[in-house]
Design a protein around this nucleic acid. Structure first.
Lengths: 154, 154
DNA sequence: GCAAACTCGTTTGTATACGAATGATACGCC
DNA sequence: GGCGTATCATTCGTATACAAACGAGTTTGC
């Protein structure tokens, strides 16, 4: 259950174009959209968070990498990716080993269980995206993803 | 500085429509968009977070309310809004007093400093939204906000 | 070669976020 | 009126997120 689901319907008063209305501020609506997606994700997956899944999915894509590099690939700073990897490690979904040449680095890889799990979840992830986009028709969804991508990349 | 800014450019390989690509999953892109907005917000405001500002802005709109009700108005669950209000209280931006009729409730209101601060920040918030939407032209921005609203509200 | 600058991972501190459990209070229904 | 249910605020536990500072290691500049 999501907090956002309980929000009262918001009435549009579209006169007075220059005024402040919280529900028209991108940040606020982005946050709510995120909340809704989170709850859809949790309903489908349950025992893995989106960041954890993102890490596993990227590892599956690129193979082994250093911890920080993986973080960059999924837009997480060093402190955040560390926690994510720690928890995945504790569950045996990833493996950690020192880099042979650069002794600062920690090489992260998928364990066998991790690989199996990711491959099972990849189709689920696509269904999650589809369900999140359900309020839009196909054409709108395509436009939305394009524009959202521009916003995300600056 | 934002982690997302350092992400390598992502190349579109648009053949194979049914395949999994992380950068096309809404959740992932929503998260990045949020990150970019966060960093824009921080650059403009600095000593207030978006949730804190949302709380103040809503209080300015609706006047006094109970803590939980305020949470519902900005899509925060009880545990989250408590922390936000606590921190605003500690800085003297909101006032807390018991409800006269319902002794369970805690009535939250803007302090004088809080009111002054919100009123100063309202125009800034609109500039933050504008800057976040800068990658889009006016028509795109309008479409984007409409579609994002649908996604957020389910 | 070597000192300065940078990178990698870690830790600490703060701020969301939410689920779940709890105590106090209010309300509904009979 | 009183009991079951619902609501309000709080607390605990877990998981992002990021800034800042740090030690250890590596690369650059000269």
């Amino acid at each position: 259950m999501n907090v956002a689901d309980k929000l009262p319907p918001v009435h549009d008063d579209l006169e007075a174009g220059g005024e402040y209305r919280l529900h028209e501020q991108v940040g606020f609506v982005l946050r709510k959209a995120n909340q809704r997606h989170l709850s859809i994700f949790a309903a489908h997956v349950g025992d893995l968070t989106p960041p954890q899944f993102a890490a596993l999915a990227r590892l599956h894509e690129v193979g082994e990498t250093s911890q920080n590099q993986l973080g960059q690939l999924i837009a997480m700073d060093a402190a955040t990716i560390k926690g994510v990897i720690d928890r995945l490690k504790k569950r045996g979904l990833v493996t950690l080993k020192p880099h042979t040449l650069d002794r600062r680095r920690l090489v992260v890889g998928l364990s066998e269980e991790g690989r199996v799990l990711v491959e099972r979840l990849l189709p689920v992830a696509m269904r999650i995206t589809a369900e999140t986009l359900k309020p839009l028709n196909a054409r709108e969804a395509e436009i939305f993803l394009k524009l959202l991508g521009k916003i995300a990349d600056g």
